[in-house]
Amino acid sequence: MGFRLSSGAVSAPRVASTAFHDDTWGEASFGTPAQHVRLAQECEEHGWDGFFTWDAISMDEPGFDTMATWDPFGVLAGAAAVTERITLGAMVFALPRHRPWELAQRALTVDHLSGGRLVLPVGVGVPSEWGFTSVPGAPTELRDRAAVLDDVLAWLKRSWSGETFSYEGERLRTGDFTFPVAPVRGHIPVWPVAVWDAARPPLKSLLRALRWDGMMPQVRGESPEDAEAGPEAMRELVAWIAEQRGPDAGPFEVVAQGRLDADGGKAAAQARAMAEAGATWWIESWWDPSTSTPEGLLEKVRQGPPRL
């Protein structure tokens, strides 16, 4: 679930997990396909701004190796059918594992089913994903996955032109394809993952995100929780983004992730700190399969997003 912290300018934040208008929220979750779809419906009913499922096939991680994973576009198609307002996406689409022509078709389908509410948070995937390590020839090194990510994004953008195109990139080459129907709004917003380090900013991932519609910031860390950017890092990053994009640039989403405190007052303070730092979305992300149950997530959704 997620919620918006602002309207999309880098000067103000949003929250995602489940969502609320003008300060947006959303959520990523576990459970059956039916439970995912119900959670999306409850997100909309309880004032969240977004619902985010997750993209994985088979994970070599404790707890994840015994639980089912589902096609994110199938889940989002179901969510699109029972909602009217909230943003839909996944945390995050591992694009180097997807065939771009199939990705384009599936994304376009959900985009049209939802009336243009799909967003594409994207990244290189994780090393523990057997969809990489168990497939001969699949890119496993970070540098290789990043190169494939760039090719897939470039291919996807070409597919939205409505024209026949071929493609020849660093790691991807195809002949002619045509997708004659464009996305509802002409393109689907893309939010790449980027790493922020004020002392040593990894420019390649940061500049990639600046070419698109938003950014999923991470900091350097040993675990997903360690990599979540706090308010200070977010403030530094937002200032850097504003400097790079200039005063006349359009809206740009900066998406924070984390887990809000169970206490409503503390949760509101957390969200307010991120909003003041410049984040535009908050994604409520619960990733521990031993504790993050569908029932617990549903209870969180029904509490609604914090009031800033």
Rank of each mutant, 00 (worst) to 15 (best):
Y167C: 09
V152R: 11
L108M: 09
A147F: 11
G115H: 12
F165K: 08
R97N: 07
L153C: 09
P127M: 05
W155T: 08
H98Y: 15
W101A: 10
P183E: 03
T109N: 12
R145D: 02
I188R: 00
V184T: 09
R185G: 02
F165W: 10
L142Q: 10
V190G: 01
T164W: 04
P121K: 03
D176T: 03
D197W: 08
G115M: 13
F177R: 02
P183Q: 05
E170L: 14
P136M: 07
S134G: 14
L142D: 09
E129L: 06
A154L: 11
P139M: 13
R158Y: 08
H98K: 13
R97H: 11
L156W: 01
E168Y: 00
G169N: 15
S159P: 12
G116W: 07
P180F: 09
H187S: 11
G169R: 14
L153S: 05
P121I: 03
M91K: 06
T174I: 11
T87Y: 02
P139K: 13
V193K: 03
P192M: 07
L149V: 10
W196E: 02
A104Y: 00
V195Y: 05
V124N: 02
G186F: 02
L142W: 13
F93Q: 03
F93P: 04
P189R: 04
S166N: 12
A104W: 01
A154F: 07
L88N: 01
T109F: 07
R99H: 15
T87F: 07
R99G: 12
L172R: 09
V124G: 01
S128I: 02
L108E: 04
E163Q: 15
W196G: 01
P136I: 07
G115K: 11
F179S: 07
A138N: 07
D144T: 15
V193Q: 07
E168W: 02
L88F: 09
P127G: 05
A107E: 01
P139R: 13
G137N: 14
G169Q: 15
G125Y: 00
P180L: 13
T178H: 04
G186N: 08
H112K: 11
S161T: 15
P139F: 11
G175A: 10
